[in-house]
Design a protein around this nucleic acid. Structure first.
Lengths: 334, 334
DNA sequence: GTGAAAGCGCTAACAG
DNA sequence: CTGTTAGCGCTTTCAC
């Protein structure tokens, strides 16, 4: 029953005051050497473990960080978690999972958890604030937004340049010789999808390529929607010879659609995804895509947040983490 | 600054004692109606939010559950998380993420977090206890093991019947007419891998099919190892016409290996995976596999844990959640 | 350098 | 039903 040992027990056994034990155990450098070692030995022999809740109450910190995502079942967040966890852990913080399912009520709950003292800070990956939520004044140094942009929020952000990344991806197709290039968007009007669409439009315009009627189809980031949008594209009078797709999951749907119509990838149609999700390279053919450095995004977001919490930084900032294009097997000249 | 409002402030403003406020706000049914509504109104108008840390200290509970996995970057755990989260959330619990990276030191840390009062309970998915760890007597009703088995631990478990599921998967291949069936294992001697191997062996024996020299190759659950093991299988003098593979990720490696050698899946070789991971059906060809009901496992594990925590249940138990075979496109008659 | 005492914010025991 | 009192276990002034 090591869990019941408290500071007082050690104090009694070591013949000192509780305060001295606390000081000895916290490396404060305020306890002299004969006692210092003795106290530590007694603590160790008793298997002492400080009660974190009591400490938290006293210090007004919880040493935990809330990480809030839209859907905890989405593998896309995994490496963000992993990166964030590694930094948090090294600094002695734990991670609390938050899952909103895109429900505004639940988003608000997580903000309230910050107020409740449930966590010291929050990494938000939901792209918006709760509706009508009045952002408390002092919250901007407790929250870092990752992957998404909350415009006009004066929160710190860690993001990629979606527009530029999309621009480059489409340029890759253009440089292969494609001129009829379609696009499947993510959910509009979400910022991420809009910016990727913007990049597509700019790349096409820069190369003075026409965006034919029906060349832009809307999806919702799901496999299903990618498959359906691709059928629409392929059924066009002059179907595209290449498609730039808003995320990898829809791109896999597109590959399926092409196969179902006996259209070869990449012989007959080239496909570029976005995200570079886990096992994307395991597909046959391996997916050409845009790599989002999720691990790094998680790391940077947590570093920003911890810097804010420790007071090292008090200005909000938008950090842009570089993406890179990954050419694999789903693209070829037309 | 709603965060600074405390029970005392409400008490003063409403002209009652702090304890009465506490009672009014906790629906204890102990406060009479004139005051009850008034107190609630005052609390609401002040934007009161209880400080959970103070409450936790007083009640000796944290209302959070530690969920510990081997690798937080592995998508396999996603739906377990999701299922666990939904149950926990409904009961007012939060989830703390634990990530061991298979490091015994870190495993031990999470056990200590339980002692520290950091969390009320733990769902463990790491398959073993920390080395030489002396399991505290009172911990068995704070821990539920999911997916893995910790033999001789007297902890509650929520698992699948790996042996039976493997047996059925191999039987599927046999019923298609295959007689030369290989197997790629997961890491040996981990229980999960051993049991799947056992199921393979029993199915082969039951059908009096020979397991030729080299038909069993060891992998480590990674894509890479699946690809390599498959090359070894294909290079055998009499290569198998079907492979039962310890998990989906290795199965994708196997498909890649077959393609690289111009061996058609499923025309020339049938492949069966295990897990039914996210997007496995998105592959072309879609992977035939064994579905592990991860969402349900997460739900059941959390339900067991909460039942233990609330004292409703004090006996440990091993719950077996049914799997089902999913026939898709990577299997065909030889 | 060390002890005594106060108190973080809440809830539960005890009176009345 | 409601107020008073105590105290969860720790850290941190404030004295000495």
């Amino acid at each position: 029953m090591s869990s019941k040992v408290k500071i007082k027990d050690i104090a009694v056994k070591a013949g000192v005051a509780p305060a001295t034990v606390s000081r000895a155990l916290s490396n404060s450098g305020l306890v002299a050497e004969p006692k210092l070692s003795h106290i530590r030995e007694v603590a160790a022999s008793l298997g002492y473990r400080p009660n974190v809740v009591a400490r938290n109450l006293r210090t007004q910190k919880t040493m935990s960080i809330l990480v809030v995502v839209r859907d905890i079942g989405n593998p896309f967040y995994l490496n963000v978690f992993k990166g964030a966890e590694s930094i948090a852990r090294a600094a002695g913080y734990s991670l609390l999972m938050g899952n909103t399912e895109d429900d505004p009520k639940r988003e608000e709950e997580y903000f309230e958890m910050l107020n409740d003292g449930h966590a010291d800070g929050m990494i938000l990956m939901t792209g918006k604030l709760p509706q009508d939520y009045e952002l408390p004044k002092d919250i901007s140094d407790k929250v870092v937004v990752a992957l998404e942009m909350i415009d006009g929020s004066n929160l710190s952000h860690v993001v990629i340049d979606n527009e530029k990344a999309a621009f480059e991806a489409v340029n890759h197709l253009i440089s292969l010789g494609h001129t009829r290039i379609g696009h499947i968007t993510g959910p509009i009007p979400e910022g991420m999808s809009v910016r990727r669409l913007e990049g597509y439009n700019k790349a096409m315009a820069a190369a003075t390529l026409p965006v034919h009627q029906g060349y832009i189809q809307n999806g919702d980031f799901s496999y299903q929607s990618g498959e359906e949008a691709t059928y629409k594209l392929l059924d066009l009078p002059h179907p595209p010879s290449a498609i730039f797709i808003g995320n990898d999951e829809m791109a896999f749907g597109a590959i399926r659609a092409a196969r179902n119509k006996d259209i070869g990838v990449p012989e007959d149609i080239s496909i570029v995804g976005f995200d570079d999700i886990y096992l994307g390279q395991a597909f046959v053919p391996a997916l050409t895509t845009v790599n989002q450095p999720c691990l790094e995004i998680g790391r940077q977001a947590m570093m920003q947040l911890l810097a804010h919490l420790s007071g090292e930084k008090n200005s909000t900032e938008t950090m842009i983490v570089p993406t890179h294009f990954v050419s694999r097997e789903t693209t070829a000249p037309p």
